[in-house]
Simulated scan of single mutants.
Amino acid sequence: MRTTVAKQARAEQTRLLLLDAAAVLLHRDGYAATSMVDISREAGVTKGGLYFHFSSKDEVCDEVQEAAVAVLRDYVDQRSASMPALHRLAGLGRELMGWLEHDPTVGASFRLAREMGSKDERFAAFSRAWFAQVRRYLADARAAGELTADVPLDTTALLVLVTCVGLESVVAGGTIGAEVDLGRTLGELWRLIDPGRLAPASPVRGRTG
């Protein structure tokens, strides 16, 4: 029994190593430039070991996105429901910018959506989950009277999405320098869009790494 448990633990550790390696490569190099051989080499796992856990690159991508969605869910679950919904929304935006800089699973998921989402919606799983959470926060804000009835929720959610995705894209594409503090820049952009409705309630957190 002890031997079986040890084997299961090693197998799970190998699986996590492979997912971590895949996230790093997909974030850095993109879908087309990342092969199963690259993933196994980056993880230090044999190709046979990789195929024992994953049958295809798309399956790896699915699980990388599942890990990113788990990061999102964990963050949302830790937010106090008593906090104003728009402050929770602003905090989520700042957190997303931090994830894009420091969490390869989220960075890889965003890149997968950008490069592959139009070909197959499975590659937009994390982006869709994040957008749905933005929409929920806006609905909560409407219900709590933080937004007036004339503010269109879908259009406002789209504005938040475009702002965040656009900021990530211009950094990823080299239009602006990689040294830009994404969280602080997002806060400044939101204050320009609407000084009262989407501005953070507290100073924007700077870089942690």
Rank of each mutant, 00 (worst) to 15 (best):
Q133T: 11
R111D: 10
S109T: 03
L147P: 10
G145Q: 13
Y75I: 02
A108V: 14
D120S: 08
V76G: 11
A129H: 07
A125N: 03
V76Y: 06
V64N: 00
C61E: 05
E63W: 09
S56R: 05
L92P: 01
R111E: 08
D58I: 04
A68H: 11
R122W: 06
F54Y: 03
R136H: 11
F131I: 03
E101V: 07
R79S: 09
P104C: 08
L72I: 02
Q65F: 10
R142A: 04
L50V: 00
K47A: 06
V151R: 10
E63C: 10
R73H: 12
R136D: 07
E101C: 15
P104Y: 12
R142N: 01
W130D: 04
L147G: 06
H87Y: 07
F126Y: 15
G91K: 09
P84T: 11
C61Q: 01
S56L: 06
K57C: 06
S118I: 05
P104M: 13
A139D: 10
S55H: 09
G107S: 14
S80W: 02
P152H: 11
R136S: 06
D58H: 04
A124I: 03
L92K: 06
F52L: 05
G98M: 14
R88A: 11
D150A: 02
P152G: 03
E63S: 07
L86A: 09
D74T: 12
W130F: 10
R88F: 12
A81R: 07
D120N: 14
H87W: 12
G93C: 15
R114N: 10
L50M: 00
A143I: 14
L50F: 02
G98F: 13
L72D: 00
A113K: 03
A108Q: 10
H53G: 05
S127W: 00
S80A: 09
A149Q: 07
D74W: 00
D140I: 01
P152I: 08
R79E: 15
E101P: 01
L96W: 01
A129C: 09
E95K: 12
Q65Y: 01
R122G: 04
F110V: 09
G145L: 14
Y137S: 00
G107A: 15
G91T: 01
L89A: 10
F123V: 08
T148F: 05
A108Y: 11
W130N: 04
P104T: 01
S109C: 10
F52H: 05
L100S: 14
K47M: 02
G107D: 11
M97V: 09
V151T: 15
A67E: 13
F126W: 15
Q133R: 08
Q65T: 10
D120C: 03
A132Y: 04
A68R: 11
E146N: 06
D62K: 13
H87M: 11
D74L: 04
